Computed example of a mutant assay.
Amino acid sequence: MLRVVLADDEAAVRAGVRMILSADPDVEVVAEAADGRALIESVCAHRPDVALVDIRMPRLDGLTATAELRSVAPATAVLIMTTFGSDAYIARALGDGAAGFLLKTGDPREFALGVRAVAGGGAYLSPAVAARVIRELTGGHLARTVAARDRVTALTQRERDVLALIGLGLSNAEIARRLHLAEGSVKTYTSTILGRLGVANRVQAAVIAHDAALVPRE
């Protein structure tokens, strides 16, 4: 039996979602909460498999509660539900550790599907939300990463090493010390890198270094 804590500040919404979930014999709503603070208390008390959480709630909003739940109840998967499907909400919810995101205005069957998916250690996105994420991945950061990695294939390994340190904002002298090179050699490498990447300055080269994930963590 999958145990769920349901949190929404509207009693009618909670009743509707509970009714939808009750149609699944393998899902049980063990507690309800009308605000974010009560949600955290309920999760700590009942240790459910899933917390089904609305974004907009008093005392503590659903996104802030999600981040806190990751610390106090890491075994409970958080599934966000909302009528707001903005990209900012989606990004923050997933960034705060939510395992899924569904829209209240979507297919009611998504509630049980989502609960089952995240309870099993997976992820779940409503189709409308998934479409937005895919568009971001194909037209946003992922696309930039792929393009940047294609560009740096024109560089030698030593040139990539120099580019990575340019990405850290190091000067030629600092790069020379790091790589045990003469400063004049670093200047030559830098000039070659800018030409091969087709960029005008070190700042543009540094952006490519970051997009290509070449920059080491300090």
Score class of each variant (00 low, 15 high):
residue 1 M to P: 11
residue 3 R to K: 15
residue 11 A to V: 15
residue 11 A to T: 13
residue 12 A to T: 09
residue 12 A to I: 07
residue 13 V to P: 03
residue 18 R to Y: 10
residue 20 I to Q: 15
residue 21 L to T: 03
residue 25 P to H: 02
residue 26 D to Q: 11
residue 29 V to F: 11
residue 31 A to K: 02
residue 31 A to P: 09
residue 34 A to Y: 08
residue 36 G to P: 04
residue 37 R to K: 05
residue 43 V to L: 02
residue 45 A to C: 04
residue 46 H to F: 15
residue 48 P to N: 02
residue 49 D to L: 09
residue 52 L to D: 13
residue 57 M to N: 00
residue 61 D to A: 03
residue 65 A to K: 01
residue 68 E to S: 07
residue 68 E to K: 08
residue 69 L to K: 07
residue 71 S to H: 12
residue 73 A to S: 14
residue 73 A to Y: 02
residue 77 A to V: 00
residue 77 A to W: 00
residue 81 M to W: 13
residue 85 G to Y: 06
residue 86 S to I: 04
residue 91 A to G: 03
residue 95 G to M: 06
residue 99 A to K: 09
residue 100 G to V: 09
residue 103 L to I: 06
residue 105 T to K: 11
residue 106 G to Q: 07
residue 108 P to Q: 12
residue 110 E to N: 14
residue 111 F to T: 00
residue 113 L to Y: 11
residue 113 L to W: 07
residue 120 G to R: 04
residue 123 A to C: 06
residue 124 Y to T: 00
residue 126 S to Q: 07
residue 127 P to I: 12
residue 130 A to F: 09
residue 134 I to Y: 13
residue 135 R to P: 02
residue 137 L to V: 12
residue 142 L to H: 03
residue 142 L to A: 10
residue 145 T to Q: 13
residue 148 A to M: 05
residue 151 R to H: 02
residue 153 T to L: 07
residue 163 L to A: 07
residue 164 A to I: 09
residue 169 G to I: 10
residue 172 N to F: 10
residue 172 N to V: 10
residue 174 E to S: 09
residue 175 I to C: 03
residue 176 A to S: 05
residue 178 R to E: 15
residue 181 L to F: 15
residue 184 G to W: 01
residue 184 G to R: 05
residue 185 S to I: 03
residue 186 V to W: 06
residue 187 K to N: 12
residue 188 T to Y: 11
residue 189 Y to V: 11
residue 191 S to L: 15
residue 197 L to Q: 09
residue 198 G to D: 09
residue 205 A to P: 10
residue 208 I to T: 10
residue 209 A to L: 09
